[in-house]
């Protein structure tokens, strides 16, 4: 039986481990040491199509997400109500972790570096979410490519009373905000994210934004928003519009497959991160199922990251043209 070592216990690593187990690989998961940074804690939105892909891999009925009302406000046009998933990232990752273990993946000690020359493994999977682990590994050269264009947004966290009402409001061109996103999760926690290109060092007050959203949302939705209170200090997320990590190795050893944020990140991270992971996992599963070599899975996944990188860069390049 072939053996794989998956480094990283975030969504990318766990979905990779589940896929490997389903393809009958012996699979070890080396989690992070305590305190290692994870991106998945920020996730609030995954679209239905991506959730369907995730459940196709991990099995139906995953905890950590549910469908909820979504109100779309597009400038002065009448708001439209529809449905969208709301995610509890910790619960979702926990559910994935349980599925991986139930399927027979084994948790092992954290790794300080990638064992690039360890012949005990037929495949190494780096799903550690960044270039740090690869950068610490002797025998690997790491290039981190970043777009000059920056993606910036601000998030306020707060509460919205008790009850299990869940919803999302997505708005654009409201209160001068190019884009705004307000979510109420099941336990009354709520979060408002503002994406703005020129907010400078501090954006407008969240309460002013909220007033404008209430006005635009109409009476019924204003009532649903009635009990919202925010911590007035937002978290600012500032990252290159696209980041692609390339790794080259000087020596042989088992193929190194990299997936998740440690391979490619593109804006808007909201809804995009899991979509990319689902795409990479699909490519990996197809390669495993076809019996082709793990190295070919590595090549197709790297190529998919190249396409995303290029697409993001072209998107960034097109902005001034569109603005003009």
């Amino acid at each position: 039986m072939r053996t794989a070592l998956v480094m990283g216990d975030g969504p990318a690593g766990l979905l990779a481990a589940i896929s490997l187990r389903r393809a009958r690989w012996m699979t070890e998961i080396a989690p992070s040491r305590r305190g290692a940074r994870a991106h998945h804690g920020h996730v609030h939105q995954i679209d239905f199509a991506t959730m369907a892909k995730i459940e196709a891999v991990a099995g139906q009925g995953l905890a950590g997400w549910s469908a909820a009302d979504l109100l779309r406000i597009d400038g002065a046009a009448p708001p439209v109500m529809t449905q969208a998933p709301i995610v509890d990232p910790a619960a979702l990752v926990h559910a994935l972790s349980r599925r991986a273990i139930e399927l027979g993946a084994k948790l092992v000690e954290p790794r300080m570096a990638i064992p690039v020359e360890d012949k005990a493994f037929d495949l190494l999977v780096d799903a550690s979410g960044s270039a740090v682990l690869a950068g610490r590994t002797a025998g690997l050269d790491v290039a981190i490519d970043e777009s000059d264009a920056i993606d910036e947004c601000w998030t306020w966290r707060g509460t919205a009373g008790s009850g299990d009402d869940r919803w999302t409001i997505a708005a654009r061109d409201v209160a001068g905000a190019a884009g705004l996103w307000l979510t109420r999760a099941v336990d009354g926690r709520c979060m408002m994210t503002l994406r703005c290109a020129d907010c400078g060092e501090s954006p407008v007050s969240p309460f002013r934004l909220l007033d404008s959203v209430m006005l635009a949302a109409g009476h019924d939705w204003s009532r649903r928003m009635g009990k919202i209170g925010f911590d007035p200090n937002p978290v600012r997320h500032r990252a290159p519009f696209a980041r692609r990590v390339e790794v080259t190795r000087s020596a042989g050893g088992p193929p190194l497959l990299r997936i998740g944020d440690g391979l490619i990140q593109t804006a808007p991270r909201f809804g995009q991160g899991f979509a990319q992971i689902a795409e990479q996992i699909e490519l990996m599963r197809a390669a495993l199922a076809s019996g082709s070599s793990p190295a070919s899975a590595v090549a197709t996944i790297e190529a998919s990251a190249d396409r995303r990188w290029l697409a993001a860069m072209i998107g960034a390049a097109s902005e001034p043209l569109l603005a003009a």
Binding site: A170, T193, F270, Q276, G315
Partner: peptide, 20 residues
């Protein structure tokens, strides 16, 4: 597969969670 992830574009980025 051309331009996977439709929501990659700044124009669309204006709508957080472009899949909406």
């Amino acid at each position: 597969m051309f331009f996977p992830g439709d929501m990659l574009f700044p124009g669309d980025m204006l709508f957080p969670g472009d899949m909406l």
